[in-house]
Lab assay of single mutants.
Amino acid sequence: EINVTSHGEEQAKHWIELAKRMNLDVEVEIHGDKIIITIK
């Protein structure tokens, strides 16, 4: 399980695309200006 804290939408999209390509599950939480991505 990987937790990524992203401070930008572009960076977040990059991680989500990467996870989808690798067929991994992704959870995205938004806390103000921080985007927390959990890849399982």
Rank of each mutant, 00 (worst) to 15 (best):
T5F: 08
N3G: 06
V26Y: 09
I36G: 01
M22A: 03
N23S: 08
I35D: 00
D25I: 14
G8I: 15
A19P: 13
T5Y: 03
M22E: 09
G8F: 15
E1C: 10
E10T: 08
T38W: 10
H31V: 09
K34N: 04
G8K: 06
M22I: 04
G32I: 08
V4G: 05
K13W: 12
N23Q: 05
K20H: 13
G32H: 09
G32M: 09
H31E: 06
E29F: 12
N3R: 11
V26K: 00
L24H: 01
N23E: 10
Q11L: 13
T38R: 11
K40W: 07
A12K: 07
I39E: 00
K13S: 05
K13N: 07
I2Q: 07
Q11P: 04
E27A: 05
T38A: 02
E10N: 07
I39Y: 01
E9S: 08
T38L: 07
V26I: 13
L18C: 14
R21N: 12
V28G: 00
D25G: 03
T5V: 10
A19W: 14
N3P: 08
T5K: 02
V4I: 08
V4D: 04
A19R: 04
G32N: 05
Q11N: 05
H31S: 04
A19Y: 13
V4R: 03
D25F: 15
T38P: 00
Q11W: 14
H14N: 05
E1Q: 08
I16W: 15
A12R: 04
A19M: 13
T38E: 02
E9A: 11
G8H: 09
E9G: 06
I36N: 02
A19T: 05
H31K: 11
K20M: 15
V28E: 00
K13R: 07
E10Y: 11
E27V: 12
H31T: 11
D33E: 05
I36L: 04
I37K: 00
M22K: 03
I35C: 06
H7I: 13
I30V: 06
N23H: 08
K40C: 12
E10W: 13
T5H: 09
Q11E: 08
I36E: 01
V26F: 10
N23R: 11
I39R: 00
S6N: 09
E27F: 10
I37N: 00
I30F: 10
V28D: 00
V28P: 00
A12G: 07
K34V: 10
W15A: 03
I37V: 03
I35G: 00
A12Y: 13
V26C: 03
L18G: 03
H7T: 08
V26D: 00
D25P: 06
H31A: 04
K40S: 03
R21M: 12
K20N: 14
E17Y: 12
D33T: 06
N23P: 03
L24G: 01
G32W: 14
K40A: 03
E27W: 11
E10I: 09
I37H: 00
K20L: 14
E29R: 09
L24Y: 07
E29W: 13
T5M: 05
N3K: 13
G8V: 13
G8A: 09
K34A: 07
E27L: 11
I36V: 06
L18P: 06
V26P: 01
H7W: 15
W15V: 02
G32E: 09
Q11I: 12
E10Q: 09
V26T: 01
E29H: 09
G32V: 11
G8D: 12
N3Q: 12
H14M: 11
G32K: 06
I2N: 11
H31N: 06
I2M: 04
I39A: 01
E1A: 07
E10P: 05
I16N: 02
H31C: 11
S6P: 06
A12Q: 04
E10F: 10
H14A: 07
I30A: 02
E29Y: 11
E10A: 08
I2D: 08
K20F: 15
G8Y: 12
L24Q: 01
A19V: 14
I39K: 00
I37D: 00
L18A: 03
S6Y: 09
Q11A: 11
I35L: 03
E10V: 06
T38I: 11
R21T: 11
K40V: 05
W15P: 07
K20I: 15
E17F: 14
E10K: 06
K34W: 14
E1M: 10
I2Y: 06
H14Q: 09
I2S: 08
V4A: 07
K40H: 03
Q11S: 09
I16D: 04
H7V: 11
I16T: 07
N3W: 15
H14L: 11
H31Q: 08
I39C: 06
K20G: 11
S6V: 15
L18S: 03
D25T: 15
H7K: 12
A19Q: 05
H7G: 06
K34L: 11
S6M: 12
S6H: 09
M22P: 11
N3V: 15
G8E: 07
H14D: 07
E9V: 12
I2A: 10
E27S: 12
E1R: 02
V26H: 01
A12F: 13
H7Y: 13
D33K: 02
V28Y: 02
R21S: 10
K13L: 09
G32P: 11
I30H: 02
E29A: 09
K20C: 15
N23Y: 14
A12W: 15
E9H: 09
E17Q: 05
T38Q: 02
L24T: 01
L18T: 05
T5G: 06
A12C: 15
E10D: 11
I2E: 03
K34I: 12
I30K: 02
W15Y: 03
V28A: 01
I16K: 04
D33Q: 05
E1H: 10
E9W: 15
W15L: 07
H7D: 07
I30S: 01
D33M: 11
D25E: 12
N3D: 04
H31I: 14
K40D: 02
V4E: 08
A12M: 12
N3H: 13
E9I: 14
E29D: 02
D33F: 14
E17G: 10
D25Y: 15
N3E: 09
I35A: 01
E29P: 00
L24V: 04
H31D: 04
I37Y: 01
A12D: 07
K40I: 03
R21W: 15
V4P: 04
T5S: 05
H14R: 09
H14W: 15
Q11V: 10
K20R: 03
E29N: 04
Q11M: 09
V28F: 03
E1K: 06
E1W: 13
W15M: 02
N23V: 15
I16Y: 06
W15E: 05
K13A: 07
K20E: 15
T38K: 09
K20S: 13
Q11T: 11
E17D: 04
I35K: 00
N23L: 14
I30E: 01
H14S: 08
V28K: 00
K20P: 14
L24R: 01
G8N: 11
V4M: 05
L18N: 03
I16M: 05
E1F: 11
L18W: 15
R21L: 15
I39T: 01
R21I: 12
E29M: 12
E1G: 08
G8M: 12
R21H: 14
E10G: 06
E9Q: 06
A12L: 14
I30Y: 04
S6F: 14
S6L: 14
D25N: 08
I30N: 01
D25S: 14
I35E: 00
I39G: 00
H7A: 11
I36T: 07
D25A: 10
N3M: 13
I36Y: 04
M22R: 01
T5L: 09
S6G: 05
E10H: 08
A19E: 12
L24A: 02
V26S: 01
I2T: 09
E17I: 12
S6I: 15
I35S: 01
I37F: 02
L18R: 04
I35T: 01
K13M: 06
L18Y: 13
Q11D: 09
E17V: 13
I37S: 00
K40P: 01
N3F: 11
I35M: 02
V28S: 01
A12V: 14
D25L: 14
L24E: 01
W15I: 06
K13V: 05
D33W: 15
S6W: 11
I2L: 07
W15G: 03
I39M: 02
I35H: 01
